[in-house]
Design a protein around this nucleic acid. Sequence first.
DNA 1: TTTATTTTTTAGACCGATCTAAAAATTGAC
DNA 2: GTCAATTTTTAGATCGGTCTAAAAAATAAA
Lengths: 218, 218
Amino acid sequence: MLSFTEENYLKSIYHLSNGGTQAVLTNALAESMNTKAASVTDMVKKLSTKGMISYEKYYGVKITRVGKTEALMIIRKHRLWETFLVQTLQFNWDEVHEVAEQLEHIQSPLLIEKLDDFLGHPRTDPHGHPIPDKAGKIVEIKQVILSTCALRKKVMVRAVRNGSPSFLQYLSKIGVYIGATLTIVDKVEFDGSLEITIDGKKKVFISRDAAENLMVTE
Amino acid sequence: MLSFTEENYLKSIYHLSNGGTQAVLTNALAESMNTKAASVTDMVKKLSTKGMISYEKYYGVKITRVGKTEALMIIRKHRLWETFLVQTLQFNWDEVHEVAEQLEHIQSPLLIEKLDDFLGHPRTDPHGHPIPDKAGKIVEIKQVILSTCALRKKVMVRAVRNGSPSFLQYLSKIGVYIGATLTIVDKVEFDGSLEITIDGKKKVFISRDAAENLMVTE
DNA sequence: TTTATTTTTTAGACCGATCTAAAAATTGAC
DNA sequence: GTCAATTTTTAGATCGGTCTAAAAAATAAA
Ligand SMILES: [Mn+2]
Ligand SMILES: [Mn+2]
Ligand SMILES: [Mn+2]
Ligand SMILES: [Mn+2]
């Protein structure tokens, strides 16, 4: 049984390692957890003795098989709760993350399976991120960053990379949502900003930063 | 801001004091919290400095106005979540308490108001207990213990006093539920057990203990 | 390849929540 | 009203999670 804090560390390690493919360094983890390197070293030893990660002094940590499964279950809960908050309780997509950070730690396998049933086994959360299934399997949909797309090509918004409330609110305001059809009508060489149309109608300018945080498919 | 543990203590104090009407002694609180008297003394001092209770050495604690409001909000959350689990997620009424013990600590006023809206502002939880409203107001329905009722009188089950899973499962098994109509057809002098009919049909015997944990109205 | 910089770990402390053991206050019995 | 039993509080320790400051290792620069 992992503590609240241990679960958060593990989730961070999973994300920072790109799903367990790379090692995670102490300082990177400290920054993402808003804590100090010394605290990370302590926690990392604990997670290591619990078999969640393998830890080699000065070389960072790698998530283990069980650790990965554990992390995916927390992510599953997080994303199912976010979906519930938006679909069922009418939250806006920029309001759900903080609450889901709490709800993801509720311990009840029955609850999460019933929630999943109730929601109709959604495959993605309100931000377009895939929801791992009961077995921890995650179906990644091939998608590319908007700013890399060709001019005049119709693409569909699939996910946001940065899910910060301010970015999400901005997207809502200009009319961009998951499932929207975008077309790049012009690229500004100077600053990387784009002129796009949304659903073939509205024409807006978005910054390079915004364009780099939208994931789309053709 | 109260910690997880402080919230649990406060809720216990509220219940043990019958909604703030009596003082609560250290040992009583220790027993209900499954902890030691020494730990209670520590916690009680902390809750006192936070203004949730007034504490007088050797004479127990009394809940304050703010403490009561705080306790009622936790109870509101607990009971709304229990209602959600049964009504929306199809839990049985004996499966919800433990999960609600966790969910009641989620911090998000927006969440609880949206949940309340979604459920249609229920007035009682799956065990018949009243749900405090947004302002902390609680509508107690006058009800009596089944074992005190007269013979042959039709009464309606309103709530259970003891909500333990085993009792609830037993009730389900014999066909007793919130809203069922019961009639006492015989009282056994010797052991206080009752012979009753459920909804005018099924005839069963229940023990004194069971009869003392069923709340009914006429 | 020696030195300087950066990263990471260790040592030692603090805080919140808990415990055991011992002291103090209250209550009950005679 | 005194003494014994019960209840409650204090004292001191532990554990998990965090911190700062200092030591050690790894990396980069000269
Ligand atoms: Mn999120
Ligand atoms: Mn999300
Ligand atoms: Mn309950
Ligand atoms: Mn209940």
